[in-house]
Design a protein around this nucleic acid. Sequence first.
DNA 1: CGCCGAATTGAAATGCCTCAATTTCCGTGG
DNA 2: CCACGGAAATTGAGGCATTTCAATTCGGCG
Lengths: 215, 215
Amino acid sequence: MSDADLERLMGHSTSRRVPAGEAVFEQGAAATHFFLLLHGRLKVTQVTEDGQQIIVRVVHPGDLFGFAKALQRSDYPGTALAVSESIAICWPTELWPQFIDKNPHLAVTAMQTIGQRLEEAHTRIREMSTQEVERRVAHAVLRLAGQAGKQEGAGIRIDFPISRQDIAEMTGTTLHTVSRILSAWETKGLVEGGRQKLLIRDMDGLSALAAHIKD
Amino acid sequence: MSDADLERLMGHSTSRRVPAGEAVFEQGAAATHFFLLLHGRLKVTQVTEDGQQIIVRVVHPGDLFGFAKALQRSDYPGTALAVSESIAICWPTELWPQFIDKNPHLAVTAMQTIGQRLEEAHTRIREMSTQEVERRVAHAVLRLAGQAGKQEGAGIRIDFPISRQDIAEMTGTTLHTVSRILSAWETKGLVEGGRQKLLIRDMDGLSALAAHIKD
DNA sequence: CGCCGAATTGAAATGCCTCAATTTCCGTGG
DNA sequence: CCACGGAAATTGAGGCATTTCAATTCGGCG
């Protein structure tokens, strides 16, 4: 994208600070804006009619999110909750068509972004269909490490508060099972747990689990 | 899309007949073309490293498929297999950027299509995370009825050959479980089975199951 | 220091899968 | 046209991964 384009885009934007625990938008609300996360971390969740929750994805700095309008929706399909203090840039959704018009390239980029998301979703479906829970959790943790991992002495720290419940909602299991698995891993020296904390000590060991290599 | 645009598009297209059981393209192959299904029925599958297969989606007449290039991929992420004799229109992927250039509107449309697919994928993830097998199968069958249902006397016929194995691969279970479930449904008068056949006798009953209303 | 949400851990229940044995159905070729 | 062969489907039995239920314990924030 050219600087001129960027400037034109920024001209219409506002920015918004969201404290941890607060929602940027809620499932079912009218899609008035779309966003770019500058700083912080969000989780996008969906609640089923019977009250069960799943985590659709985690939003990292630099990610676009909430572009429901681009997908032909008038409301947000999920809730975007800040898990740590976050800052996002906001554009009114009405401007989307103009942006596309003036900068067709943007449409291509956006499409590729959504395409990647689709592939991620398919990966998740594949994993849930064919793999047992421990492998799925291993994959999820490795993915988080890649997206939000921060070197920290002995290992890699997941750089935002994440609970067992969160991991359960990302992998389609229960917090109990996740807790048991992480405890077992801790015993084996693969990870180090903690309250809403996770430190990976042995990436290779985890990768082996994810790839289903038995000891 | 205007007639002129349509004509310009059609000018570069070829059409291709695919007998039942044959693949339009295979997982991992270079993405040379993208397609529009005119007639017939395809299933798009993915195989995991350890040989397990899942059905990503069923392609119905009128659906675009195989637009890997638009998603920034050079190879097809899955295999598209004709389950009944099919006819597809093909375009070389190289032409995609030109089409977008000349007709930015196309990009928007394509994006919405992919967006819908993403939502479908999320729905599936939500179901697999929170629902037991019987409900998932009920949902899958209802979806098929909506997409490929054909009134037939007493009920609605799924209008292409579909096996218990197929349904299992769509819902993340085994053919055995699917078979048991369908047998139970047949006893209750909800459906009528058969070799690669499925007739729905009681949509409301199935919907109730899908919504988890116990008797 | 006290409280509340997060995490752990045990025990029991169960839904689903795996293994295995038939049976049914349909296309094919004699 | 019928018999055969193989793929699809059915069905039982047993096992086990995971959930569910329940009871503590832990840890950080106010």
